[in-house]
Every structure is written in structure tokens, then in C-alpha cells.
Nucleic acid binder design. Structure first.
Lengths: 152, 152
DNA sequence: AGGCTGAGGTCGATGGCGTCCACGGACTGT
DNA sequence: ACAGTCCGTGGACGCCATCGACCTCAGCCT
């Protein structure tokens, strides 16, 4: 992980569909060299995936909620996690410090679906209680934070 | 937005670097047709961006925090928003229902940097108080939720 | 009914890109 | 000094992106 790798990561976080040729121009190497570096970043676990970022409303996922989960005393955290993993509406899952063991970000189409989701969560073995906050709007999300030095 | 568009969105949410030729094979159209459809999805605001998803620890952003913000009574929400937007560590910003007007997801390298961030937030005009929860680990994040019908 | 029009597709051509390979220079340890 | 390793370059070749021409079908106006 040198400065060039960091630049590549920044460039791809900004636009994952840049061609290797374009990346090469930006960092001042040849295309094959960039190809090899990016390949290593992928197989080395630095780059996990390339994803299109979609406006959720346009695909019928207009309701965003953040849900704190309090576990039962003596619950098996791994089991709870697996149960959460099986619920597609849960987009993100953080294991937290504090009374609430998990914080979930969920996306559904309607408030009625959110209600169903909350019921389902409360019924999940190991879950003691849930606390749901609704996001009225998403100002921005997953903004990539530049990490490379200014410029070679 | 027909079923093919939804499939394209799903495919690109799964892997943003798929070639048009490959997308075309998957949805059963020709490459130029797919090219045009994806172009329309982009310019129509459905696809906002393509981003590489990076393991944060590997680029020196090992600390994730979720921060609730209570505004001063009479604060100008837009001004507060602009102040937040200028802080690169804030990756996501949701405008919430409830006492806390905003929920922020921030990523920093160290606890010391988190402390500085919290101080900065508390000093921001219009911010009455902050409540920070630290994520001990991210189980998963931004998992794409399939939205297309099973398969043509 | 007939024909115009526009949307949205296919096909074919061409230039650029991805990707493989052979080669070369700098650093390192012996 | 020398050999090995790492990391890069340049060339070659086949696939892909992308443009233009054309086709087909649905809807609509006359």
C-alpha cells in the first residue's frame, strides 16, 4: 500500500467504472501495471466490491429506518446475527458499544412494510427490544473520504 | 423502468464493473441496447454513481461512530447541514424524525481523531448536543437488496 | 384503412481497451 | 559482483465500447 495504491483506491471510490487505461493516465503508470495493482488490492481484501449506487426511491425503497437492538441477557449473539443476515431489508449491521448491541439500517418501500419488519425483529429469538428511528431524508450517504496525499 | 431496467440495476449493484457485453448476455439484449438503457438510468438519476467498496481498516479508517445531533431551538437547519457537509469524516447524514435532528455516520482513524471530531461538532453553530455511539465492528454495510422479479 | 412518427431494438464496423507475455532495470542479501 | 526478486514497460491480439444505418411495432391522425 503505497501512495499510488491509495490514489487508485480514491479514484475507484469516486468512479468504479474508470478504465485501467484512464487510471493509468491519472497515476502515471502503464495500464498493465495498474491492472496488476488493482488485482492485488482486490485479492488482498482492500477492495471488497464495486457497486452502483442507486437512488433508493426510484426502485421502490423510499423508507429508511435506523433500528437499535437490545439483546436478551444470555442471547447468542452469533445466532441473532445470522437471523439478521437472512433479512434482506437490513442493508447495514453494526455491532455497537452500549445498551443496544446492534444498530441496523433498513430500507423498505412503505411504512406498512417497516411495521412488519419491526414485528419480525421483535420476534427474533435473542432480541429483547427494538428502537426504531425513521430517516425523513437522506442528505448524503457513503460519501468517499479522500485518503491519498494531495497529488504526486 | 421495466423489468429489464430493474435487472440491470440489480446486476450493477452487485458488480459495477460488469461490461456492457456481459450485462447484455444476462438480460438477453444486445450490447448497444444495454448501453442506451444504462445511460438513461444514469441521466435519469436512478444510478447516482459507481463506487469501489473498500475495507476501511486497510486505508486507515478503523473507527466508525454514529452520532446523533440535537439542534438548538431556532437553529437554521440548512446552515447546520452545510457545516456538516464540509466535514469529510462524515460519510452519511440522515435527517431524522425525533429529538435528534440528524444522525451522522463518521469514520476516522483513531479515537483521538473521533474526540476532535466530536469537539468540532459541538462547536458548530446550531448544534445543541451530540450523542456518540461507537461501532465495535461492522458486520456488513450497504448490502444491495435485490429488487428485480426472480428472472425473465 | 393507411401512413407518419417515435421509441427502442438489431446488426456491422472500427478504434480503443483489457490482458497476456517477454523483457529490463533497480534493490537486496550473500 | 552477482543472482534473485519485484515491479515496471512495450508489443500483440482478441474482445469490447460505441456509432450509424436500418428494422419493427404501437399509437395516432387524417
Amino acid at each position: 500500500m503505497d501512495a499510488i495504491d491509495l490514489s487508485l483506491v480514491d479514484l475507484l471510490r469516486g468512479n468504479a467504472r474508470l478504465s485501467y487505461a484512464e487510471l493509468a493516465r491519472q497515476v502515471g503508470l502503464s495500464a498493465p501495471a495498474v491492472h496488476e495493482r488493482v488485482g492485488k488490492l482486490e485479492s488482498g481484501g482492500v477492495i471488497r466490491a464495486y457497486r452502483a449506487e442507486v437512488e433508493p426511491e426510484t426502485i421502490g425503497l423510499g423508507v429508511t429506518a435506523l433500528i437499535g437492538i437490545v439483546e436478551d441477557s444470555g442471547a447468542d449473539t452469533d445466532d441473532v446475527l445470522e437471523a439478521f443476515r437472512a433479512i434482506p431489508e437490513i442493508e447495514s449491521c453494526y455491532f455497537m458499544a452500549g445498551v443496544e448491541s446492534f444498530l441496523l439500517k433498513a430500507r423498505v418501500g412503505t411504512i406498512a412494510e417497516l411495521e412488519q419488519l419491526i414485528v419480525r425483529l421483535n420476534r427474533t429469538p435473542g432480541v429483547n427490544s427494538t428502537r426504531t428511528s425513521i430517516a425523513l431524508s437522506t442528505k448524503w450517504e457513503n460519501r468517499p473520504q479522500a485518503v491519498a496525499p494531495p497529488a504526486a
